[in-house]
Nucleic acid binder design. Structure first.
Lengths: 224, 224
DNA sequence: GTTTTGAGGTAACTGCCGTTATGGTATTTG
DNA sequence: CAAATACCATAACGGCAGTTACCTCAAAAC
């Protein structure tokens, strides 16, 4: 009974690519191409796949095929499928946050630009975001992210609304945090329906919806 | 070369159970138990599984296990997995429609009872509905159902709102169909967030949200 | 009693998935 | 040049899925 040695001591995962950062550059190997850029490209492809096939339909193999490589490449940049999808989620929220930060002006044009953004690029980010929210319900790690991000989002919106209330541009008979909650829910609702009934969001109808939303939150002593 | 006879001519699917109806009763076999009831029970179990595991996590085997039977029973009542899930969707919408029909009174108490309904039974119907909406985006057959049902839902809501507008109970500066669209979107948005942040829907906060919604759609010359 | 039929269990077949191990190649450092 | 290393392709493994074929058993009709 001498032979008990084919345990292979796990061979510490050969790649140092846990975060989105440079791979530590202290080796002497290949030029390390542009690691972060390639990774970001894979994320983009993965977003498209999730948008069209859903979370469980977005297999590593499909992502690889779409990106023109093999699963070897994908697993090189992402330790897991979970890691890949987490990268997608964080990326989408970062995009959304920076969008929010960039719209300093009033609500209406803000929402308008938002909707145009959402319809661009075949609206992959929006569709993927929807699929991932559905998955968040099933995965505690996801749920935590969404709770944090959504809370921040709502707080930002509430702060902005409170400011507009002080300027008299938004009705003041509803507390800003409740208003933010309502607007946020409405946006989410549209996010749900947009993929299913895109014809309801043609330019004309969209404009009517936005105008109505502005009327809804305007002070009651406005025109008419 | 006489032997070429092990093609088994497909043996026309042995069960006549395509719809939810009785199995035609004209045979002389077993008493046909209560076919529809058993089927409905399986649907209920399937709803719970979808609610907790999502669409793709709800395998026939899991449904069978939860129902205390085997996949043989499930495939006896549903030709397909698709057939099973379609039964779920139609069932949930029927439930929702009959709920809508039962609330003849004003908006607020209607929404209140709706929310209580949604929180009951561990809110499986709501959770499952959310998961299935996400799947509707990926399956044209599903999308068609949701388009039809949602259109009906919104039309009902709009009709009711228009009546309230004529009675002066709802603000009239926004057309009823746009108002219905907005309220529907808000409800959908809450449906999204409820599974992820249930603590945001505690009794007190829920009441505040509902009150704010009523204020939002009230005529502007109301109290205060 | 025999046959028919409703009801459902058992298990095999095929296919896709995530994971992991391994091997190969190009490039940079020494 | 040689060694080390970043990058990636290939392929195998185990697991779970939907579907389908087959078998069993009880009850009703004859």
């Amino acid at each position: 009974m001498a032979a008990r040695n084919n345990l292979k001591l796990k061979s510490a995962p050969r790649s140092p690519n846990i975060p989105g950062e440079m791979p530590a550059k202290r080796g002497r190997g290949r030029p390390a191409g542009d690691h972060a850029a390639k990774r970001a490209e894979l994320v983009k492809v993965a977003i498209a796949v999730v948008a069209q096939e859903g979370f469980s339909g977005a297999s590593l193999r499909k992502v690889a095929q779409r990106a023109g490589c093999t699963t070897g490449a994908v697993t090189y940049y992402f330790e897991n499928k979970e890691a890949m999808v987490l990268a997608i989620v964080e990326g989408l929220w970062d995009e959304w946050d920076s969008y929010l930060a960039a719209t300093e002006d009033d609500l209406k044009s803000g929402f308008e630009r938002f909707l145009n953004w959402a319809k661009a690029d075949e609206s992959d980010p929006w569709l993927a975001g929807f699929q991932l929210i559905a998955h968040a319900r099933l995965d505690p790690a996801f749920a935590t992210i969404y709770q944090r991000r959504y809370a921040h989002y709502r707080k930002t919106l509430a702060t902005r609304l409170a400011k507009e209330q002080r300027r008299g541009k938004i009705r003041s008979d509803i507390p800003a945090d409740l208003l933010a909650d309502q607007l946020c829910a409405m946006a989410d609702g549209w996010m749900i329906m947009f993929p299913i009934e895109p014809e309801r969001f043609e330019a004309e109808r969209m404009k009517a919806l936005l105008d109505a939303m502005v009327v809804l939150v305007s002070p009651r002593d406005d025109k008419l």
